[in-house]
Each structure stands twice: as structure tokens, then as C-alpha cells.
Design a protein around this nucleic acid. Sequence first.
DNA 1: CTGTTAGCGCTTTCAT
DNA 2: ATGAAAGCGCTAACAG
Lengths: 350, 350
Amino acid sequence: MAIGLKDIAQECGLSAKAVSDILNHGRTHSYRPETCERVQEAARRLNYRPNRTAQTMRSRRTHMIGFVAPAYSSEGLMNYNIHPFLVGLSHGLTERGYHASLVELKELETGGLDELPSILHERFFDALVIHYGLSPGVRHLLPEFDVPALWWDSGVFEPQDCLYRDERKAGRTVTRRLIEAGHRRIAFFGGHSGWESYLAGGPIHYSLAHRYEGYRAEMRAHGLEETVITGYEKAEFAARLRELEPTALILLGLGAGTALLFDQTAHELGWRIPRELSLAVLDREARLPQRGVLVGGLSYDRYAAGRKAAEMTLQTLETGAPVPSVKLLGDFEMGDTIAPARHVRADKIP
Amino acid sequence: MAIGLKDIAQECGLSAKAVSDILNHGRTHSYRPETCERVQEAARRLNYRPNRTAQTMRSRRTHMIGFVAPAYSSEGLMNYNIHPFLVGLSHGLTERGYHASLVELKELETGGLDELPSILHERFFDALVIHYGLSPGVRHLLPEFDVPALWWDSGVFEPQDCLYRDERKAGRTVTRRLIEAGHRRIAFFGGHSGWESYLAGGPIHYSLAHRYEGYRAEMRAHGLEETVITGYEKAEFAARLRELEPTALILLGLGAGTALLFDQTAHELGWRIPRELSLAVLDREARLPQRGVLVGGLSYDRYAAGRKAAEMTLQTLETGAPVPSVKLLGDFEMGDTIAPARHVRADKIP
DNA sequence: CTGTTAGCGCTTTCAT
DNA sequence: ATGAAAGCGCTAACAG
């Protein structure tokens, strides 16, 4: 049987209250140093461990924060972007004695919710941090919880309790920086299949839509025309590059496979990156090790965002009131893949 | 005030026991259907929510699994590899009503532990899954917990309660496949700085050391000599390639920046990937979207590993006994970056 | 400074 | 089939 406060109390001939004060609340000043000594010695000797659950039951605080995110299909690919946020969140919470716990939400094809995990109904978490993938409006599919909730990158934009990167501004910023560097034929690379359906009017994660909208708005503001390239098929990609002759490509992000595709295709056309073709990403994860060629574009420091989320959550918990929403924006870097458009042939400038 | 069992009981003129049976245990068969109906209706109407903490207190089970990992320095870069494992773990646990909670361990420079987070002392987690980054032997720095613990990729190799990929075999497998494809001059690319200190006898994560050992052993078994290339500086890297003229490079992994470095340097030498230079990674994360050029090598399905960890943990919890350790190994794929060494000049074969 | 009492919300006997 | 009562380990409130 586990050792409890009572056992220590009995051992020392004290009340459980005294032992609780001394061991779990550091209220040693209320007792004789000698008493404290004796209690601590007994606790060590009997290997006393406080029972967090019992403490929770009295204090009504679990010190647990639920990180709520859509479940990943077991066969599906995953979104690594969540990781730095989660680490930042956990880091910020841990410093204050809180912990983050994962809660998966089953999303339906329709964008609705199947059923909420029962733990969300069980008065367990002190607060929730929600990362919900789908389009705005989804918020109202989730019931009102009686705990504070912070919405991160969830397509929820309200004056309070929201945290997100300004993706429209991200799109505009990268586009503007390229234009400032002399680029005129700037194409948007929306690689994966969801993109084509989006351009045809279908749904897509708000962040991607906003980035594209920002790109388009900035292009138009400069009297330039937007162009989109989709698909990863090499021959097709090469043909499209030859046809459009862009001097810069705006990318959602860049992995090894796509980097090789771009570099190899560029070489086939006799181009070099970045001399004849600049690559600018909209989402360079700030805490991912950057090795070799530095990919240019706008960063997103999700680790910092996670820490911010922790801070906001703890503040809400402390004050009992909502916190003002926070908008994030990354830093732009030219890196090794963005160069001024010195080599644009004059006849190609619109 | 929150609605409890008692309130429902009072509302329905029943005992708390009856309400508990009906609402939280599905023991409806012991009561009149009409009674059950009334209770459920009242629960809905009064918005009754079970209190998980109180349930836990009685059952002595929190249904929480601690995922214990070293804390990341707030400024540092992070190891994304943990993510798919964590998602897999959470996925496997969620299906059975368990949840994963993050616990960060403060690591000292010396490889020891500063202090354990207090939650590990508070009888909170039903079990732990530990991912400990440092060298073997560290296990004994952690105290014996009175809960089951599973060690993932922690440099702990015992017959029970361990889960890890066989990294020596990984090194051998990739090397062997390249040799079978006709390669003879196969260099090991240990990019980052930790590598040079390792070769000089310093410490490094066991998985990297094992991979290199596997490579070396397989090379020697075929009468071939190991060679190592380190560093990401382009000119130096190009010079080293020209000097060694390897037909294949074994990499720990491959990101966009390194991919560009390799492709651009290869082109400078007049080589093409994979025609004159194959790239084989030891650690291709299986659930990361593969787009564009498919990077060849050995995969590591950390998502599956996480699910396995969940399965093992739940089994331990069920049986109360340790589980046999499990060794993983990935799948080898040629991809688009590995080709047979058809173009090796005869005079260069050792 | 220290002890006593009364719960937190639920579940588990045990009795009816 | 249903109810009464005890108690999980801890702490807040109150006494002295």
C-alpha cells in the first residue's frame, strides 16, 4: 500500500494537516524547525509521494492543458508543423507546473465533427488550446466548453483568445519583397492536388487560401498578373516554366524532394537557382535546422507561437478573463535562393 | 456550481449509486427502463458532466501516459522526428481511452539529469514512454518509477520494455544495397559538427554511431574502405567530392537546403543525381509527404513505432507484466536518387 | 503553532 | 432492484 500523509503523521505523532503544510506547501515557518526536520526525514524514509489526483480534487485544478487537434488518419501523412508549436507550448507550460496533453478530434469528411472525445466532457482540463484544421465557421460546431479555450491557426479570428499568423500579409510581404528585388513574372507554386480544386472553387485550409489571396492582391496592386503552377510531374513542370519564364517562384514550403525537382528542372532549362530563378517560401519553419543552401522567404516560428500560447493560456487562467488575440508574422530572408532579377530580358517585362 | 451525481439523484428521487450505475457504467439492465430514461433526461437537462478526477481517485487509474523527453533549449533547433512517434502513440492510446501527456526532462550538459519534474513523483501517470536522447547508461540516472516504463530509441537495449530501430542493421542494409547495385566508392556524409567530434572519440547519439558502425562493418566485409565527408561548405564539399569521386553518398537524412547543396555541387562537377552520384538516406521519415523527386534509402516509420509503443504500454497495463522488447527496421527504396553504378570508371574501382 | 472536522465527487461495499 | 454509508488522499476552515 502506498504511503500517505496519514502514515507520515502517525509516524511522527502529528496531524495530517501539519504534514501536508510542511511537505506539500512549504509552510515550514509555522512549525518548529525540528518538527519539519522530523517530518521530512520520515517522508524520505517511507518514500512518501503526494497524490496529485487527490490534490486536484480539492483544488479543482488539474494543471493540465488539453491540446486539441484533428486526428490524423492512421494511413495518412502528417503535418509536422504542429510539432514546434507543441514543444513551445509544453515548454512554456512546464515552467509553470502545467502540462500539455494530446486530445484528438475525429473529423468527418464533411468538415463536421463525429463525436467529441469524452475527456472533454469530464471537467479534466484547466484550459484548452485548439488547433483546428478546417475552414472558419467550424468553431460553432464545437460546443461551448466551460474552460478557457485558445484558438491557434484555426480559422477563427476574433478579438479575443485567438493566435495566428497573418497569412494574407505573409503572401503580400513575400510578393512585395520579390517585386522590390526587380521581379515581375512571379509565379505561385501550389503543388499538391488540393490546390487545383481550390482554384476551381473548392475548400482549402484558410492559411493556404489567405497566402494566395495576399500574393494575388499584391501582384494586382502593382499591375502584375498572378500565375499558378501546380503539380510535381517533372516534364510538365519544365514545360510550364519554359512557357511562363518566371524569374521567381513563391512556394508554400520546400522539402528535399521538391528542392531536387526544382534544381534539376532548372538545370535542364539551363537556369540556375537563384540566378535565373528565385525560390521564395511562404513558410520556412524557423526552428528547423537550416543546412547547406539557405532557403529564402518568410519564416514562421511556431515554437515561439507555442510559447505565446502558453503565456496567453496561463494569463487567462490567472485573471479569469479572455486575453486579446495575437497576430504573428515571420521574418523575411533572401537566403541563397532569392536574387535580384537582374537578368530579366526586357521584352519579357509586361 | 457544477452538477454532480447527487443533484441528478435528488432531481429524480434516486440514490447517487443508481445514477452512477446508469450514467457512468451503462448498467442500465439493473434498473427499470423508465428509471434510466428519467435519469438520462435529467442529466441532459441539467448538463451533468462526470468528474474524471473523482473517478480517478477511486479507480487509481488516470488513463494518462507520460511521454517523457529531454527538454529543448528555448533557442535551440528541434528534433522533428519525435512528432510522428508522438502522433502514433496518441492515436493508439486514444482508441482505448488513454491520453498522452508531455513531460520534459531537463538535461544537463554532462548528460546527467538536473531534477525530475515533480509530476513524475506524484503518482499521476499510469505508465511512461521515455525517449531519452543520450548514451546508454543514462537509464540508471533515472530512478525506478513505480509505474511501467517503455524506452523508445533511448540507447537502452534490454530484453523487455524497449522499442527501437536496429540502427546498425540500418547502416549495413543501405550499404549492402548500394554495393549490390555496383557501388564501390561509397562515402558517408556526416554533416553536422557533432560528427567530427565523434570521429575524434567524442560522444554522440547512439543511433548515429550505430549507423556509422553498420556502414563501416559492411564496407569492410566487402573489402572496401570507409570514407567520411563532413561539413556543408560548398567549395570544400565540391573539392572533397572531386578528390574521392564517390559514386554514392550515404546520408543520415535529407532536407531542402542539403538537397540543393548536393544537386548544385553535383552539377558544378558535371555530375547528375543519380546518374553519376547516388544519394541514399538512412532515415527517410515514412509519413512525411514525398513530393517531386523521391529520395531513396531506408525509411523509419515513427508513426507505426508510436502505435507499437501504445500497444506495448497498454499490454503492460493490462497484464501487469513487462513486454518483450521490439526491434524495428525500415523499408529500402531506390527512389529517384539511387541508380546502379553503371558509370564507374574501371580504373577507379579499388 | 497545532489539531479536529468536514468535505471534494464518485464508487464500492453491504444491507434491504 | 435500490438505498445508505464508508472512504479514496488531501486540504480548507475553524478551534484552540
